[in-house]
């Protein structure tokens, strides 16, 4: 059973110009995507920079105004209600940001940063609040004395863990993680990813994992959606996407990921160039005249792929 449904979400930005500052054009950052979230599952959103994946995350949580479409949380429509007081949406959906440093207030102590969601959503006495903060710091593996320090006193990985502590303070159901590890070194990244998996198991969390790193997404997610120009190109289980990619864009993206083994790299390079050439050649068949991705059609219970125009030549 899905606890949250996103229907035909669109975020358009007007482009103003001319003498009267009229709307002359719109940028379709997110252009009609639908998703469903089940509890305890991780959903990956993958795409190249500028494809609208971050905007999607921000629109769902309410940091970006939704142009059309609906976000339905436990049966309640919560679209564009900044203070969505009628449902527990604000408490149950939290976010982790890419740049941990700039998402922590430099003038607040760690204690006050983590206390903020607690004060907003949980009615705890001062003593309970203090205990809760210590508990959260312990969960993310930070020492007790971190409470009275300021964000700048921590390393990048530690700051990201503080961001996670803040996000899980209210026992959320869904965490939207926007590139949570892309600024971190490999070994620190491993630590954060392990840890995110641990708390997922412990609290039955769902993730919306936004990343451009297909390796990380493969490690973390059950379901993956590939995004291009504001629309889904392909969406399915991890297995569907990695072992049975259908759309040319997905194939191209997968073939471009460097593999961590030097064996067979010549063959991979040839394959990559072949797919790239095919992509350039057949581009028109996969997108409509406005270069918009065509609508998704199901090819199995879990696997959806954007339609293609009738082929002029054979496939790969």
């Amino acid at each position: 059973m899905s606890f949250m449904v996103i229907q035909d979400l669109k975020v358009h930005y007007p482009v103003r110009g001319g003498i009267f500052n009229q709307v002359v054009d719109t940028i379709r950052a997110v252009d009609g995507i639908s998703m469903e979230f089940e509890s305890g599952k991780a959903y990956g959103l993958v795409g190249e920079s500028g494809c609208g994946k971050s905007t999607t995350g921000r629109a769902i949580i309410g940091l970006e105004k939704i142009t059309s479409g609906r976000v339905i949380y436990e049966g309640v429509n919560v679209t564009n209600k900044r203070t969505k007081r009628k449902s527990s949406f604000n408490r149950d959906v939290q976010m982790i940001f890419q740049d941990a440093h700039s998402s922590l207030n430099p003038r607040k102590r760690v204690r006050d940063i983590i206390a903020e969601p607690i004060q907003n959503f949980l009615k705890l006495s001062l003593k309970e609040e203090e205990r809760k903060i210590s508990e959260l710091l312990e969960i993310v593996g930070m020492p007790e004395d971190a409470k009275y320090k300021y964000p700048h006193e921590f390393s990048g990985g530690q700051k990201q863990r503080l961001g996670i502590a803040r996000a899980i303070a209210t026992n959320p159901k869904l965490i939207i993680a926007d590139e949570p590890v892309s600024a971190l070194d490999l070994s620190v990244q491993a630590q954060i990813l392990n840890f995110m998996k641990d708390i997922q198991r412990e609290f039955g969390l769902s993730y919306l994992f936004i990343s451009h790193d297909l390796g990380v997404v493969k490690h973390m997610c059950d379901y993956i959606s590939i995004m291009y120009k504001g629309r889904f190109v392909e969406s399915g289980t991890k297995n569907d996407i990695y072992n049975n990619p259908q759309h040319i864009y997905t194939k191209r993206l997968l073939s471009a990921i460097p593999q961590v083994t030097p064996i067979g790299r010549e063959r991979r390079k040839r394959e990559r160039i072949k797919i790239e050439n095919y992509y350039q050649e057949q581009y028109k068949n996969y997108f409509d005249e406005n270069e918009r991705v065509l609508d998704l059609i199901p090819i199995s219970n879990t696997h959806h792929v954007a339609a293609t125009l009738p082929m002029q030549k054979g496939g790969i």
């Binding site: 630590q191 392990n194 998996k197 990380v216 490690h219 990921i257 593999q259 961590v260």
Partner: peptide
């Protein structure tokens, strides 16, 4: 240790190595 920290190389049920 570095090689064992790469998400790609291990299956997702495995924990990544942390230095």
């Amino acid at each position: 240790s570095l090689f064992h920290s790469i998400p790609q190389m291990s299956s997702s049920s495995e924990r990544l190595n942390v230095i």
